[in-house]
């Protein structure tokens, strides 16, 4: 897994590449929470190059979404590959999360 971060007009964009599994998700979680502790409350996850996700990665997304809701923040995901999208659908996360087709749409929604 590789994570790249950039801040565009107060929106923290995470580009997550590779695999979010039981071994890599803790690092993903700590990167997200380091950002929240720095005061970032508007997050966009660009998942264009995320090839694989398991329940460990889904848990981090669910927890982040809940915590941001309580902080009056927001999270938008974009550019999901078919497999990742199906895993989100099976988990029922499509009902809780704002998922956009591409980064431009995500930046409009955040």
């Amino acid at each position: 897994m590789e994570i790249f971060q950039e801040n565009v007009n107060g929106v923290e964009i995470f580009i997550v590449k590779g695999s979010l599994d039981s071994n890599t998700s803790p690092e993903f979680e700590s990167r997200i929470y380091a950002s929240l502790e720095n005061g970032q409350k508007r997050l966009v996850l660009n998942l264009e190059d995320l090839e694989y996700i398991s329940s460990a990665g889904i848990r981090v997304m669910l927890k982040t979404t809940k915590d941001l809701k309580h902080m009056d923040g927001n999270i938008v995901l974009c550019s999901l590959q078919d497999y990742v999208k199906e895993v989100f659908d099976i988990a029922g996360l499509d009902g809780y999360l704002c998922i956009e087709k591409n980064l431009d749409e995500a930046l409009l929604k955040i």
Partner: peptide, 16 residues
């Protein structure tokens, strides 16, 4: 399909 606040984070792996 429950509300986000009530949504637990367990049991998903076996569901998959």
């Amino acid at each position: 399909r429950c509300a986000l606040d009530k949504r637990g984070i367990g049991g998903l792996g076996i569901h998959f």
